[in-house]
Amino acid sequence: MCGATVGGQALDAVDVARQAVIQGVVMRDDSPVAGAYVRLLDAGGEFVAEVPTSATGHFRFFAAPGRWTLRTLAPRTGPVDRPVVAARGRVVEVSVPLSG
């Protein structure tokens, strides 16, 4: 629906050469955070997609080439923004540490 699925790290079934993948993991105190919400915002700050993190804290977006912002929402913490640049044929790995 929104161009994204809950991610793991494996991309076996995906033709990465045609995609601009942004994926990663949300961590708190060195432990993965399941059920956090990661939003993909475009260069203008407009909402594009949102996924909850998997049981292992992972998320993935199939974006387009360009500049994006990842905004992470989780219990007991304010939103955390991370800028990211996506490119076709590349898989950008992002780790989002949460404080508190």
């Binding site: 059920g35 919400y37 909850p52 929402l73 989780a74 219990p75 007991r76």
Partner: peptide
Amino acid sequence: RKIWELDS
């Protein structure tokens, strides 16, 4: 569901 989860 999101607000329910974010509220723990």
